[in-house]
Design a protein around this nucleic acid. Structure first.
Lengths: 180, 180
DNA sequence: TTGTCTGTACGGAAAAAACTGTACGAATAG
DNA sequence: CTATTCGTACAGTTTTTTCCGTACAGACAA
């Protein structure tokens, strides 16, 4: 086994690990392989480069590089004299994690919060309604308590996302200082 | 619209929000609907209850309640005199979030760490090899630096998971005190 | 033991997602 | 202006995932 091959082995192992975990970022494994491939290239790559490297269609490269860009894992690069779009991996993985975490959970919080708010007011109204049977009111009361609990939970989750977005999380879990 | 119906509306809205976000726990929407349904029931439910409530097959109920259990979102309950298996939702959503977070990311860290470790030693060996061309060695050197960076990142991620598992996260982002 | 009931493994059907090739709009070069 | 080149929308195909019905193993009752 020559040097080139051993180098590729080392790269492939890590790339495969990325591919198998990229689902945590909501992306399919192929996007992970694409990312891994880009990660080990010094130069920004064009869609055609990727097509050649991975042996997949250019359309696939286009759609998944877009997904990677949306996920803030990849960004466009510019280089004078090159007309094609160039892409490179963003190199701050800590920020990448934070971006993923905040966008995913912020969306979840917002969706749930509005649903909870609406249902709560609807149930409160129901409690005051004379025409509603006592039996239904009891169930509504129980539901309200449940909703108040999860409302608090989502409020906590929102503050958790804040803590990541504002980098307060690094106070609790600091990044290892290189100088140590 | 009568009271019963309005109650069901309120429940359905929240359940649908759950269904649309349960993918964050790695589960399909149907499992989310199942969870939502269970959430609004006071009593633990059997598989047959769920089949009736959701109009889905018993096999589906079985597989997805297992997935929910594995995800620590649901647990088995016992009730004397009932031979069938009973299930209820776990009521600590904070712990549920932590369980999901830790299992998912711990697995990711461990997979990556071992891949990185292996590839690093392979590349180090390659650097010391006389027969390997200088050109390849340069690429290997660049790869090593990249791998050292992400090794630090995963070490940080591991500590982050610790912070959740050990509940240190509640120091940074406290749960709202009910008495306030 | 035999009969009944419960949960799940398994194979196939239905639904969803990923991937490809063609075709076209936008941008640039000449 | 025309010709070329790039990226992506779209429709169709392939692959993967989800869901169902049957059948069976295990537990319990009698």
């Amino acid at each position: 086994m020559d040097g080139q091959e051993r180098l590729e082995n080392a790269r492939r192992r890590v790339t495969e690990a990325i591919a198998q975990n990229i689902y945590l970022y909501g992306l399919p494994p192929a996007a992970g392989r694409q990312y891994g491939m880009m990660f080990f290239h010094n130069e920004p790559l064009t869609l055609d480069d990727m097509t050649e490297e991975l042996g997949m269609s250019k359309t696939s490269m286009s759609t998944s590089v877009r997904a990677l860009t949306d996920a803030k894992l990849v960004e466009r690069a510019w280089r004078r004299g090159v007309r094609k779009d160039l892409y490179k991996v963003k190199d701050d993985w800590y920020q990448g994690f934070i971006d993923m975490f905040t966008t995913k959970w912020r969306k979840s919080v917002s969706l749930h919060s509005s649903a909870i708010r609406r249902s709560l007011t609807e149930l409160e109204k129901l409690l005051k309604d004379e025409t509603v049977s006592e039996e239904v009111k009891e169930m509504a009361q129980a539901d309200i308590e449940r909703l108040l609990y999860i409302r608090d939970y989502y409020e906590w989750l929102d503050r958790l996302v804040d803590a990541f977005e504002d980098h307060d999380i690094f106070d609790l879990v600091p990044i290892k200082d290189e100088s140590e």
